[in-house]
Design a protein around this nucleic acid. Structure first.
Length: 573
RNA sequence: CGGGGCGUAGCGCAGUCUGGUAGCGCACCUGCCUUGGGCGCAGGUUGUCGUGGGUUCAAAUCCCGCCGCCCCGACCA
């Protein structure tokens, strides 16, 4: 392919609306063009890399025994109402009506459609197990699209769904996908880590996310270097040692005028935040619940929601707080008798806490010398792991300390159980003619996000450094003298030979100074650069260099030997 | 949803406070020159100044409405 035939318009300056390197480079290297917030056109170069990632995913899905299908993006509302997600996904789900006022959703995933499909096609255990997948555009009405392709309203996703005869059988389907994912990300040149995760709105029992570590990542992940435990902060557990607090005298009120936050009261009283019991009033499916955690800790909403077994959980508004406790936010606490009606729960690390400070349920007052067992209605069953893990917390599996890192979620594998199969009554006949519900799993990879994650993980100050497997073109042949006949001939011959070997080649035939073509080659990041010039040829060689290598690693080889040398270089990238 | 910022050429921006008929850099086109890391010179093209209304002799500039985009926050008491 000739450069001058392609729609490429590289930019010298960073786009004004990009925050992170990969987003800036996507735009500067002319891979994508924004059309509106969270919506992008893929230009020829971007389309090629997107297709390459998709091709790797397709190959590995097929290898793992999954079958490719395509489901509609526009999906009838009835299916979504059957599963309940028409309501639970709320405004995150795009919906629209046709001229007959029938409602539709734009698919953000396809559990409903695929379960309905399986229900209709599968009637016997003989047809299982089966895993279906598609590579299809998905739509989500994100609150705040950002970071280019990382969080956009429309994105390319591979979604797969497994159907099995039992939970045990589903393990094999899950593991097949898990292993396929490891291969996929490795082939894309990515270091991706499987991380234990919450199952979110999709539901189910067990799941792993695949994360690429990056400072710009939107997710926090607890890592234990001791045993390899890795978990999304939404789920990450921590181990706490049993407290042995000394008995304390009866609690007493302390006047704390104007001090509302833990930081303010802590400063006012000259006591560290960890000595406080922070008490928050939540609205759990509409009922107020008080949650107590150490003053230097944040409540983990996901853990709390699971523990309480409720669907909708949010911090209560100020009026509810006042009604439930008799005090305004900033002065509330768990000590009786104020909160007689409300359920109170607390983080496990507070079991046995004595001598702590809480709100007094009276504006501008706190209590000191609180003994949670003695002074509150908290019973053993009310304690659970309810806080967000922090760096330095103890790993629940090996006892070593964990660290929090940032990650980009590029893939997710779930065991769904029978959540959707139950909703759609997707059953099959067993060998003894009984009816049984299918057990499902679902498995997603953000293809467009993966593409950007590769850039985020593989770039330098000059531009992208494409791994060979997903480069828009693996080799750029830079013609220093495009008008020179011998240069053009050597380049054409080289291009033909490489393409015969299955290598994607772009020939930079622009009448530009070398500085311009070199800068562009580095910016777009073609895996290997070949320079063909009249002077070099006169001396008997062309020049080859891997993008990831420094200038000094450049080699000069005779044109006849170039294809073999280039293939070797590509194999190492 | 709340707060802040921004909308001027394909891209990045100045001009707005203090109203006077729109500018810079990059890109693009022509010519000369140059030719190993975004060269130089000369000439040139590209704008409903986001949009609708108002004030005014005159509006990118002042006033009001709307739209879009970006960032932060969304109540951790």
């Amino acid at each position: 392919m000739k450069w001058t035939k392609l729609m490429i318009q590289t930019l010298r300056e960073d786009p004004g609306d990009a925050e992170i390197d990969s987003h800036k480079l996507l735009v500067r290297a002319s891979l994508v063009k924004k059309i509106s917030g969270g919506l992008y056109t893929y230009l020829p170069l971007g389309m090629r890399t997107l297709n390459k990632v998709a091709a790797i995913v397709r190959e590995e899905m097929d290898r793992a025994g999954a079958q490719e299908i395509v489901m509609p993006i526009l999906q009838p509302a009835e299916l979504w109402k059957t599963s309940g997600r028409w309501e639970t996904m709320g405004p995150g789900l795009f919906h629209l009506k046709d001229r007959g006022a029938h409602e539709y959703a734009l698919s953000p995933t396809a559990e409903e459609v695929v379960t309905d499909l399986a229900k209709n096609i599968v009637s016997s255990y003989r047809q299982l197990p089966a895993t279906l997948y598609q590579i299809q555009w998905k739509f989500r009405d994100e609150i705040r699209p950002r970071f280019g392709l990382m969080r956009s309203k429309e994105f390319l996703m591979k979604d797969a769904y497994s159907f099995d005869v039992s939970l045990d059988a589903a393990d094999a389907s899950y593991m097949a996908m898990f292993n396929a994912y490891k291969r996929i990300f490795a082939r894309c040149g990515l270091k991706a880590y499987p991380v234990e995760a919450d199952t979110g709105d999709i539901g189910g029992k067990f799941s792993h996310e695949f994360h690429v570590l990056a400072d710009s990542g939107e997710d926090g992940i607890a890592f234990c270097d001791g045993c390899g435990y890795a978990a999304n902060l939404e789920k990450a557990e921590r181990s706490v040692s049993k407290r042995d607090d000394a008995p304390c005298p009866d609690f007493e009120e302390v006047h704390t005028p104007g001090a509302k936050t833990i930081d303010q009261v802590s400063a006012f009283m000259g006591v560290p935040g960890s000595a406080f019991v922070k008490s928050l009033v939540y609205s759990a499916d509409g009922t107020p619940v008080m949650v107590c955690v150490p003053g230097d800790r944040d409540v983990n909403d996901v853990k709390l929601r699971h523990f309480l077994g409720v669907r909708k959980l949010e911090l209560a508004d100020y009026e509810t707080v006042l009604q439930a406790t008799g005090a305004n936010a900033g002065s509330v606490g768990p000590v009786r008798p104020a909160c007689t009606a409300m359920r109170i729960v607390a983080d496990q690390s507070l079991a046995g806490a004595r001598g702590c400070i809480t709100g007094a349920n009276r504006d501008d007052y706190h209590l000191k010398n609180v003994d949670l067992a003695r002074d509150t209605r908290l019973a053993d069953a009310d304690f659970a792991d309810l806080v967000v893990a922090q760096t330095g917390d103890i790993c629940p599996h090996c006892g070593k300390t964990m660290a929090i890192r940032r990650g980009i979620e590029v893939g997710h594998v779930f065991k769904l159980g029978t959540k959707y199969a139950d909703a759609f009554n997707a059953v099959f006949k067993t060998d003894d003619l009984k009816e049984k519900t299918m057990v499902m799993g679902c498995y997603g990879i953000g293809i467009s996000r993966t593409l950007q994650a590769v850039i985020e993980q593989s770039h330098d100050k000059d531009g992208i450094i494409w791994p060979s497997a997903v480069a828009p073109y693996q080799v750029v042949i830079d013609l220093l003298d495009p008008a020179d006949e011998s240069v053009a001939n050597v380049a054409a011959e080289l291009e033909a030979q490489l393409e015969e070997k299955g290598v994607d080649v772009i020939v930079d035939d622009r009448e530009e100074r070398p500085g311009v073509t070199f800068k562009d080659a580095d910016l777009i990041g073609f895996t290997v650069r070949v320079v063909v010039g009249a002077k070099g040829l006169a001396k008997g060689g062309v020049e080859i260099k891997a993008r990831k290598d420094p200038k000094e690693a450049m080699k000069i080889v005779p044109p006849a030997e170039a294809p073999a040398a280039i293939l070797e270089l590509l194999a190492s990238c």
